[in-house]
Design a protein around this nucleic acid. Structure first.
Lengths: 155, 155
DNA sequence: TATATTATGTTATAACATAACAATTAGCAA
DNA sequence: TTGCTAATTGTTATGTTATAACATAATATA
């Protein structure tokens, strides 16, 4: 039984070899930890889990380097507003990897990676670029409360 | 000659007394440093400038507490993507203080505090809330290159 | 196989932020 | 005014996030 994580890992591996990137054993393990995580993890969280899960050491320095690699390969995103990392939720699908928008629940800390409509993003971009400013990234991080947590509250 | 900074400080002072907040001497000095700064400053930048400008000590701990106060009073914003602080650009005007959107130039590090159109924000909010997620903040931080830096590049 | 490049290990330290408790100051009621 | 309370600031220690600098190991390829 091949689950979603394994499929993502395979896809990541094949995509990397296609583009000449080296998804080494340790990099792959870091990705696996992020794929298995229910929430975004800090770099030091990853170090801890790495040791636990694989009984193998990983220095913080190495973790940061591996995260940098995985981000360049578009396999991992960084949440700049919380200094945490998460696997791209579109590794296993055929989607084009556009810049992500994240909805971050400030109560349960889960994150939903969404794709806002092209139209809306275009308007946003247009509105901003009318000021003379050229966007380099359209990654958005929006904080709030997710549906599940709201449901819990109103019980 | 009363300049914009003094006007802002007076306005901040009167707004605080009106709402029962205490804009103490040190808090006021921290605000002044941010008003005078051309760029957003880190907490430790503020500590350094405080010592230089006022020949008075300020611990990092105190700086963080004063920044917290100033943020609660809506006089200062924090850029979560760069861990820096800046004075609200609407202190001296009569505007309602709505949640800000920032355009951050990754080259010269200047920041422009803009107000996107109500309509666009409404669409954005609507599009997000259709997923069941309720936004708690609509502060946006958008990275790119400002007009001045682009002009310099194309010379 | 030699060698150049890339990846990882290791140590130290910079940069950002908060906890915990003490001392001081301001606000206010008796 | 005095004494009480709450808010502010001081102080020290420590936690958290991130990078610099240089050494060693693994890999690619000429």
């Amino acid at each position: 039984m091949t689950n979603k994580i394994d499929i993502s890992l395979q896809k990541a591996q094949s995509e990397c070899s296609r583009t000449g990137l080296r998804l080494t054993d340790k990099r792959c393990k870091v990705l696996k930890i992020l794929l298995q995580a229910a929430e975004p993890l800090s770099a030091y969280d990853i170090v801890d889990q790495f040791k636990q899960v694989f009984a193998e050491s990983l220095s913080a320095m190495s973790a940061y380097r591996m995260l940098d690699f995985l981000m360049q390969a578009n396999l991992v995103h960084k949440l700049e507003t919380s200094n945490q990392y998460l696997a791209c939720s579109h590794i296993s699908c055929e989607h084009n990897h556009e810049l992500p928008q994240f909805l971050i629940c400030d109560q349960c800390h889960t994150v939903k990676e969404i794709g806002l409509s092209k139209q809306l993003l275009k308007e946003l971009r247009g509105s901003i670029e009318s000021t003379g400013f050229v966007l380099s990234s359209q990654q958005l991080e929006l904080h709030g409360v997710c549906e599940a947590c709201r449901a819990k509250q109103s019980e």
